[in-house]
């Protein structure tokens, strides 16, 4: 593999370049990473090394002793996986010099993630750096590249739309609940139905501070059983009218042919509660909540299509921000690269 004479390289297999089957083949379990470090280090091809391994990417950052040592590293990785180097070379992508730094910044900022702008990758890169540093595999060059790269990634995340807006349905619903109620600590949530999507939404609400939950099912036993797992108070759907006014957020995901929440029921419920808003989240197919409920004053009704449309819009906003993010990444990579050249670390 050729890297154009630069000693700084990144060898990568990721979702952009390889299908899932290939990524599975070359994935490195956390407990095996130490062995890969040792193997790559024993070749004496690199002065500094860093392995980044996530569900969607395997990457090896290295500062080579000689620019021509890339093949030695590739052979070490192939050896680690018990595969021929020629096979690995088919799927392994190489970036070097300034491009390798830009790649790192883009990966850290979530620009190269499968879910554009996701934030978890930043933590994963940080952990990978910390591990490599603790074990003495990083030196002046990689320390500088990663530390400055993290700053650049933070700048991108803070100054652009790349991480703004939620892009999965449960989180969109939770974000909307926040826009209606502010703190969710005082907002009582009722889950009508005990399906998976309802459970996810309840969990997402709980993670954002919601404390009071009610779980309603057709059978009381089922509600009581789910309450044991999710927490909250059990209810039966048949008694909905009696307890509906106690709740601020209603998540409906019941398998039913007929709407279980209709305008009359909601209107009566509104009359028995103070002026707090009512947020209805209809995750059912067919729909569980009559569309007319959304016309009532102080009632906000969102169904699956509404939430999906918002998630799509948010994702599009993130994608729209990509060119700006890439410009920042390129500028910062150039600055870091120049600073490395000045210090004779390239």
């Amino acid at each position: 593999m050729s890297q154009g004479g630069d000693s700084l390289v990144v060898l990568t297999i990721n979702h952009e370049t390889a299908p899932l089957a290939v990524r599975e083949t070359y994935a490195v379990a956390d407990e095996d990473a130490v062995r890969l470090y040792e193997l790559a280090s024993s070749t004496n091809a690199a002065e500094e090394l860093l392995v980044l391994n996530t569900c969607n990417r395997f990457e090896l950052y290295a500062r080579l002793r000689e620019a021509s040592e890339t093949d030695t590293l590739v052979a070490a990785i192939a050896d680690f996986h018990g595969k021929p180097a020629s096979e690995l070379e088919q799927v392994l992508h190489l970036r070097s010099g300034r491009e390798a730094i830009q790649h790192l910044i883009e990966v850290s900022a979530g620009l190269r993630s499968q879910i554009t702008g996701e934030v978890e990758i930043f933590g994963q890169v940080k952990v990978a750096y910390a591990t490599s540093k603790e074990n003495g595999y990083t030196g002046k060059a990689l320390n500088r590249i990663f530390q400055k790269g993290f700053q650049a990634a933070k700048l991108i995340r803070n100054s652009t739309q790349i991480g703004e807006g939620q892009i999965n349905i449960s989180n969109v619903a939770v974000e909307l609940a926040g826009k209606i109620f502010g703190s969710l600590a005082n907002a009582a949530t009722l889950s009508l139905g005990t399906g998976e999507i309802g459970e996810k939404t309840v969990k997402a609400l709980r993670s954002r501070g919601a404390r009071r939950f009610g779980i309603a099912s057709r059978q009381r036993e089922r509600a009581e059983s789910i309450v044991g797992q999710w927490g909250g108070r059990p209810h039966t759907i048949a008694d909905l009218e009696t307890y509906l006014p106690e709740y601020d957020i209603v998540i409906a995901s019941v398998g039913t042919e007929q709407a279980i929440l209709n305008e009359r029921l909601v209107e009566r419920g509104l009359g028995r509660r103070d002026d707090r808003p009512l947020f209805l989240i209809d995750l059912g197919l067919p729909r569980n909540i009559e569309q007319a409920c959304g016309e009532l004053d102080n009632v906000f009704l969102y169904n699956l299509d509404d939430l999906a449309a918002i998630a799509d819009e948010n994702l599009q906003e993130r994608r729209n921000a990509m060119p700006q993010c890439q410009r920042i990444a390129a500028q910062k990579a150039q600055l870091i690269w120049e600073s490395l050249q000045k210090r004779g670390l390239t």
Partner: peptide, 26 residues
Amino acid sequence: MQSRSLKRKEVVGGLFPFMPSLVELV
């Protein structure tokens, strides 16, 4: 404005992301 945005489901972009919640405004 906030109530209208939430009713019309216009919740991406504009001033919406920076607005406080309805309950806080009340």
